[in-house]
Simulated assay, not measured.
Amino acid sequence: MTAIAGPRVDRVRTRSGRATVAAYVSLTKPKLVELLLVTTLPAMMLAAGGWPGTGLVLATLVGGMLAAGAANTINCWYDRDIDRLMSRTRDRPIPSGVIRPRNALVFGVLLAWVSLVLLGLFTTPLATALAAAAVLAYSVLYTMVLKRRTHHNTVFGGLPGAAPVLIGWAAVTGSLDWPALVFFGIVFCWQMPHFWALASRFRYDYFRAGVPMLSVVAGPVSVGRQSVAWAWGTLVVSLLMVPVTPQLGWTTGIATLGLGAWYVAESHAWLNRIKAGVPDRPMRLFSVSITYMTLLSIALVADVLV
């Protein structure tokens, strides 16, 4: 019996250890972190006019990943009460009891500290300061102050959401310039239809949790119209990328125009479905938004390399 029980206990402990690690990783919202980092590398390559160096890229991406993961972890710690009320979030590690709130908070603070040390050692003071500001803006200003108080929370949350662009540029140059600010504007505007589509899909969850998202306090038509306006804003700002960035050419010009038109068309299609009273399928716009940002980032990188 002893010979059998030992390996079984070891296997159980291994599975338990892996599950715990996976739970801590999930606190960082890795899919969201991945989407944010998609914009960091193009910004770095635009700043460098090519490949900025493997060491700098790794330090910036890892540091940015840890900073975003820290902000998301603190968000999960603070929102654990409302996460229990929402079907989309009730299985997260804290409300499900897998990770204790205090441990999650310590983990988030530790991630933030490591990220800033890494960025401070291997990038620039401005990039480090921007990362620190982004963590504070998302975890404190957005999560603790604005999210439960105003439906404008998404707009304020879009500022740290677009910060990886500025961090990536500053990591290379130690300063900011117009291409970085325009790219920041694209990502900022892009986030509104992206997140409002998701919030519309889960509007009842937010209503039950008492979170005043736009999809809760405004009618569907209003949400759709504002999403259309921000999609147009994304297109208009994106058309400035080529004029302010000498190293970009016709590849990016065609990509920004085509992808922006697609994003606008899909936002109008969502609004039209809402007005028609048919299933509005907000997640279709959500999916298109992810593809839009991914393809735009690829186009920027390709243009710089070519």
Rank of each mutant, 00 (worst) to 15 (best):
M1D: 11
G6N: 11
G6L: 11
P7A: 02
V9N: 09
R13T: 02
A22C: 07
A22L: 10
Y24P: 07
V25A: 05
L27G: 00
V33I: 07
E34W: 13
L37C: 15
G49R: 10
G50D: 03
G50T: 02
W51I: 01
P52G: 15
L58R: 14
A59C: 09
A59P: 15
A59Q: 12
M65A: 15
M65D: 14
L66H: 02
L66D: 02
A67H: 08
N72H: 07
N72L: 12
N75T: 13
C76S: 09
Y78S: 12
Y78E: 13
D83E: 00
R84A: 07
M86K: 00
D91I: 12
R92I: 04
I94H: 11
P95M: 05
P101H: 07
P101Q: 08
R102W: 05
N103P: 06
V106H: 07
G108L: 12
S115N: 01
L116R: 12
G120T: 11
L121M: 05
T123E: 10
L126W: 14
A127K: 06
A133F: 09
L136S: 14
Y138V: 10
Y138T: 13
V140G: 01
T143D: 02
L146T: 09
L146H: 07
L146K: 12
K147S: 06
K147V: 10
H151G: 05
V155A: 15
G157W: 11
G158R: 05
G158S: 12
G161H: 05
A163Y: 04
I167V: 09
W169N: 02
A171I: 00
V172R: 03
G174S: 05
S175D: 11
W178K: 09
P179L: 13
P179M: 10
L181R: 10
L181M: 14
F183I: 01
I186L: 03
F188V: 13
P193Y: 09
H194T: 11
A199I: 12
R201F: 09
R203S: 03
L214M: 08
V221L: 08
V221K: 13
Q226S: 14
G233M: 06
L235R: 15
L235I: 05
S238H: 00
L239W: 01
T245P: 03
T251H: 06
T251S: 06
T256R: 03
T256H: 01
L259C: 08
G260F: 02
Y263M: 06
Y263D: 00
V264D: 05
A265D: 01
H268G: 11
A269I: 05
W270L: 04
I274H: 03
P279C: 04
D280Q: 15
T291N: 08
L295A: 04
L296C: 05
L296I: 12
L296A: 09
S297F: 06
L300W: 07
L300E: 13
V301N: 09
A302M: 04
A302I: 15
L305S: 09
